[in-house]
Write a protein that binds this DNA or RNA. Structure first.
Lengths: 372, 372
DNA sequence: CGTAGTTCGTAAGTACGACTTACAAACATG
DNA sequence: CATGTTTGTAAGTCGTACTTACGAACTACG
């Protein structure tokens, strides 16, 4: 009955110090999501005792991650509480978004979400690996210099297949194959770096900042079409780190437009912004084009919605194309093609053009502080 | 930037005793998967020290979960090791499979996987809730009596939507809606009971007993078509505990056969055993029917494979229909419709007709001992 | 045959984390 | 002003895994 070959990497021993780290992250996450509160409030929120909470807060104060904000004003009897909070304005993150069709974008963002500085560089031509890497190095260095306070880390969202440890396994757009970008930037910059797929980063943003549920599919429509899947609140990476690569899945049983990849009927050939605009420019009826795109999107994701029992789909990309006819058609088609999913939501992202940059903050919060 | 509404239930404090429980399960899982070994071997395998391992083993010996098997013969210098192992023959599980089209099946199985006793009762007509419940009660009671050694628990695989705590939310076949089956059986039998969807149970069996990877989709074809999804080695349950309910997802863009649910083109109408046999009986070419079914299966799961980056699909059900043309067509179609998945495996389950019964063992091992 | 070397399992003591109990500080209320 | 409430921390306990150390039981070799 045993299966000796089935090695599982997740099976690791747990020591008391791991519990400590977990509870530390728990305190940080509680502050991040619920805002400033007293040590006693934190104890109630986490279930830990006041004593333990106080000890953890002391440690976090020492690490400069948390700050005291003075006493709470006029609140009932008892000794007034000293509010503590994540040092939201004293901690900053550098985010890079390499998924835009025209430029590499970057920003310095603090933990309130405020964008403190922006930089951009024109995108090198597809496949220009060296130029792309030089641009990223330059952008990261400049933004790190533009930070005004302590930088927790640099988060990068890039198109392509990216491994858990930040190796760009394959990114035709960027011309990178097996490039250990995370390690390279880490050595160049001297601060923690996390690199992940752009759509996956967008999914993190939707979940942690946008309040999306723990089971959500984020579809990012731009140059291409990518997705990020969260189940149980955690990112799904897949067996080869290629989870979310949905752009070149064939949709429907009736051929369809020719895709750049050489096949017919890929989701991307129906839905990418370029495809939409090309077909409209060629004289096709705009409404019909958007309706088709919405329908095809739903046809593609209906099996995913059914299999994973998703209740929420988030669309990220230009609202003028995605919101309205396209989304409405997608909802209708999805409900018609699935079972038990009459209430499935298909909504636009509220994160705007900065999804990936904001997601980079989440990438760092999760990777460095264990906050998600 | 905070999202105060985003409550997450997964955020729980961790105490030292939780670490202890985890390490206890780690020892049990190591023994289960790698077989009998010495305390020192266990220490090396788990990464814990010999002292800690010895302590844990002592506790497990006391609980009767582990037994000593005497000294290892003729193995190099040093004091001979005392082999310890899970008490594979002294611990038994009662498994129930309510998914068969003709009967409710049950068995007493020990941890070697040996079936020690079988019982079956004819399946009441669809929707006969009371009769179904009575049959299950009777089957469980009788099998529990037939057990010859300590019973770790009763595992039940049933069609329908079943919540994490074993409430049958909805099972039209069985006529049950919001029936707390797990609690009822627990009270009746006095032993731990776990209830889950039949396809999900099959997926557990494939992973833990069949050596399937951590990212796998198990498609169970029988009366209906259901699926179980594992990501990162864990079962995906979905936002409404309906993950895997893939039978009534529409496949393709060309209508298709009429389904029992009233719509056209559901996967079940292409693939369920009844559909296959009906169409063949009506004079359709057998090969064409199987080819169609395989193609439709692939069309349905291609987006799931792409989105989750699955590398392995397991088919469970009658091999005379599923293995061969159907499976071959599914592989070809899947590769043609996905990207980066030229090596995706579509294989038959090696668990035979007892998948669900064997999966019940895994359900109990996981639920009661933390072994998976 | 005796000694050296190896491996196993456990006893004793240490370090760390969260707990309970207890208390001083600082407020509101009557 | 006395009382009650709440906060934050000090002191001590308990559970967990660790390191160090040792006796037991084997092999290998001179």
């Amino acid at each position: 009955m045993t299966a000796p070959g089935a090695r599982r990497a997740t099976r690791l021993k747990v020591l008391p110090e791991h519990a400590r780290a977990h509870n530390r992250s728990l305190v940080l996450a509680t502050l991040f999501h619920d805002g400033a509160m007293s040590r006693a409030d934190l104890a109630r929120a986490t279930g830990l005792t006041r004593v333990t909470t106080s000890d953890l807060v002391g440690e976090l104060l020492g690490d400069g991650l948390v700050v005291e904000q003075g006493v709470r004003q006029g609140a009932g009897p008892g000794k007034p509480a000293i509010l503590v909070d994540l040092d939201r304005e004293g901690l900053q993150v550098v985010g890079l978004d390499l998924s835009d069709s025209r430029e590499y974008r970057g920003a310095v963002i603090d933990l309130t979400g405020a964008v403190l500085a922006r930089r951009a560089l024109p995108r090198p031509a597809d496949g220009e690996a060296e130029a792309a890497l030089a641009a990223v190095r330059s952008l990261a260095t400049e933004l790190l210099g533009a930070a005004t306070r302590r930088v927790l880390g640099v988060g990068v969202g890039a198109p392509g297949v990216i491994s858990r440890d930040g190796v760009v396994v394959s990114s035709p757009n960027l011309g990178w194959f097996d490039l250990p970008l995370q390690r390279e930037l880490r050595e160049l910059l001297g601060v923690p770096v996390h690199v992940a797929n752009d759509a996956n980063v967008a999914a993190l943003a939707e979940h942690t900042l946008g309040g999306a549920s723990g089971d959500v599919l984020v579809v990012k429509v731009g140059r291409g079409v990518g997705a990020g899947v969260l189940t149980r609140g955690e990112l799904t990476r897949g067996s080869r780190d290629a989870a979310g690569e949905i752009g070149h899945v064939t949709v429907g049983t009736d051929a369809g437009p020719l895709c750049a990849c050489g096949r017919r009927g890929c989701l991307e050939s129906w839905l990418s912004i370029r495809s939409l605009e090309e077909r409209i420019a060629q004289g096709a009826d705009r409404e019909a084009v958007l309706r088709d795109a919405g329908e095809r999107l739903a046809i593609a994701i209906a099996p995913v919605v059914g299999t994973l029992d998703l209740s929420e789909i988030v669309l990220s990309g230009p609202a003028d194309h995605l919101d309205g006819i396209l989304r409405d058609t997608a909802v209708d088609t999805l409900r018609a093609r699935t079972f038990l999913h009459d209430d499935v939501q298909v909504r636009m992202s509220a994160q705007g053009d900065d999804v990936v940059l904001r997601g980079a903050v989440v990438l760092i919060l999760d990777g460095e502080l264990g906050v998600s």
